[in-house]
Amino acid sequence: MEYINIFIKSAFIDNMVFTFFFGMCSYLAVSKTVKTATGLGAAVIFVLLITVPVNYLLETYVLKEGALAWLGDDYASMDLSFLSFIMFIAVIASIVQLVEMLVEKFSPALYGALGIFLPLIAVNCAILGASLFMQQKQFANIGQATVYGLGSGFGWFLAIVLIAAIREKIKYSHIPGPLKGVGMAFILTGLMGLAFLGFLGFEL
């Protein structure tokens, strides 16, 4: 039950795109057709599902205040949390690289679909943002962190596929010239954000 709650909360209520604007750059750049949007969305889910738990372990056993207690009493009072930015981004960059190599080796079909998007993801704010929020929320165990990663990824996937579908249709509408393209995408995202606000306070 708790897991479902975390999933719903991270996917719909605290949606990455509509509430925190994470990953807006790729969200706007890659949402011109549904097909590529689906590919990028799937890649984001995939990477979040792996990086959030790994960073959770890193946070709990290395970075948090007192996290190094397992090394002995001398280390029990160490607080390395100021290093978290550089550790998280290093983990993310290397995992993205690793995932890319593994996918290429074991599933060429998936690699064909995700291929070009994987390297892009290393600098997608949604990935680092999810890890930083995971650090802030202080989840009780790794299961919750994983579900959080999955939920955030799903929320992002949903957002980019929806906007891509709308943008495909709106290409044929009469929009004032200066508003065409990015400007309209912003306003559309705002309207979708308003709709998503309806989930506020929703709990199982």
Partner: peptide
């Protein structure tokens, strides 16, 4: 105060900016 309003404001900002500089309307 809600998140969507910043999207509207940036959207309108782009609109005004591009309307004043027609050479920016590409694509």
């Amino acid at each position: 105060l809600l998140p969507p309003s910043s999207l509207f404001i940036v959207g309108i900002y782009i609109w005004v900016q591009k309307a004043r500089n027609p050479e920016l309307i590409g694509e």
